[in-house]
């Protein structure tokens, strides 16, 4: 590769891939540190084709949730469900190379996830997928034939930079089911009384926050030091 110009697409994808790894790490999956800091030349060696362009199919990877993540995603035991299982599991991340992504690719992806017994999946696309595919995705969380944990879709562009690393973005921390109940009990609130955050909010999307969960937002303030607020994901 000496002396050759690195393709712009490859550099882009190197950033996208690293952000994706960081995102999985921030969500609580087990990610190798080296992947998040991989240098461009190593990335090129691993994932470039002979013509210098990236081979997206080689970028796909799977992740396992850490113990902490499993605990966070496990509901508090109840009389009805004394031994709840975690609402999280292995995830498959796929970098699609098609120019146009629609229901065709989404259906194939769904089948792949189910056959591979993945709990959920993230598809990263070159361009935004079709409107009908978006609708299909929304409906598929309620369909029985998809993966239990659903499918998320990101456009490469969204992952070029890691938005959570921006200094103005406060830290968002997902509360576990037990933490959420404690919070509501303490303030004698119903969750519907909390301020809200859309599940489509960029940070909520980055963290894969699901509807109904509560996120703690920690801000730094010059006058008050650090203070926390809570939002209900809708």
């Amino acid at each position: 590769m000496e002396g050759e110009r690195t393709s712009a697409t490859l550099i882009r994808l190197w950033r996208v891939w690293r952000t994706t790894k960081e995102m999985m790490n921030d969500r609580g999956y087990i990610v190798v540190e080296d992947d998040m800091t991989m240098a461009l030349d190593e990335f090129t060696r691993k994932f470039a084709r002979e013509d210098g362009e990236p081979d997206r199919s080689r970028l796909n990877f799977s992740c396992q949730p850490s113990q902490d993540m499993l605990a966070k995603y496990t509901d508090a035991p109840t009389k009805k469900v004394p031994n709840p299982v975690p609402n999280i599991g292995n995830i498959w991340i796929e970098f699609n190379h098609d120019e146009n992504v629609g229901m065709k690719q989404l259906r194939e992806y769904m089948t792949h996830l189910v056959q591979g017994s993945f709990h959920s999946g993230i598809m990263v696309t070159v361009k935004p997928m079709t409107g009908m595919a978006v609708r299909f995705l929304r409906a598929s969380t309620t369909l029985s034939d998809g993966p239990k944990g659903g499918i998320e879709v990101f456009v490469e562009q969204d992952l070029l930079v890691n938005i959570t690393k921006h200094e103005l973005v406060p830290k968002h921390v997902l509360l576990s089911d037990a933490e959420k109940s404690q919070l509501l009990e303490r303030y004698r609130l119903k969750q519907t009384q909390l301020p809200r955050i859309q599940a489509t909010d960029p940070v909520a999307k980055y963290l894969g926050l699901r509807r109904g969960s509560v996120v703690k937002i920690i801000r730094k303030s010059e006058t008050a030091g650090r203070y926390a607020s809570y939002r209900w994901v809708i």
Partner: peptide, 10 residues
């Protein structure tokens, strides 16, 4: 139109 788009992708 959406149908046509999806068919074209396929």
């Amino acid at each position: 139109d959406a149908l046509i788009e999806e068919r074209n992708i396929a």
